[in-house]
Amino acid sequence: MALKPREETLVFLNYGERTLSDDGCLTCGNVAVPVRVLKVQGNVAEVEDRLGERTTVALDFVPDARVGEMLLIHLGIALGRAQEVE
């Protein structure tokens, strides 16, 4: 896994420090993991976290997700997209 440039890491961290391999408390739902969309295929997307770990997530709740966008995922399902901060 290639190390991400600092800027990119900071963008991820803006939306939380969790990564896909974190095993914190899932049930409180405050572990939404920020990920970047790499590929969209139907209603699943291949995504990558700030450490470069990849997984596929269901896009049923964010069906218009696009490649390059930052999503917040919880339990293998995208729950929302990160909004730009001014």
Binding site: L26, T27, G29, A32, A58, F61, L75, I77, L79
Partner: peptide, 11 residues
């Protein structure tokens, strides 16, 4: 879980 988790169960 709360409302963050319930949609995943629903789906």
């Amino acid at each position: 879980g709360f409302e963050t988790t319930a949609p995943s169960t629903a789906l």
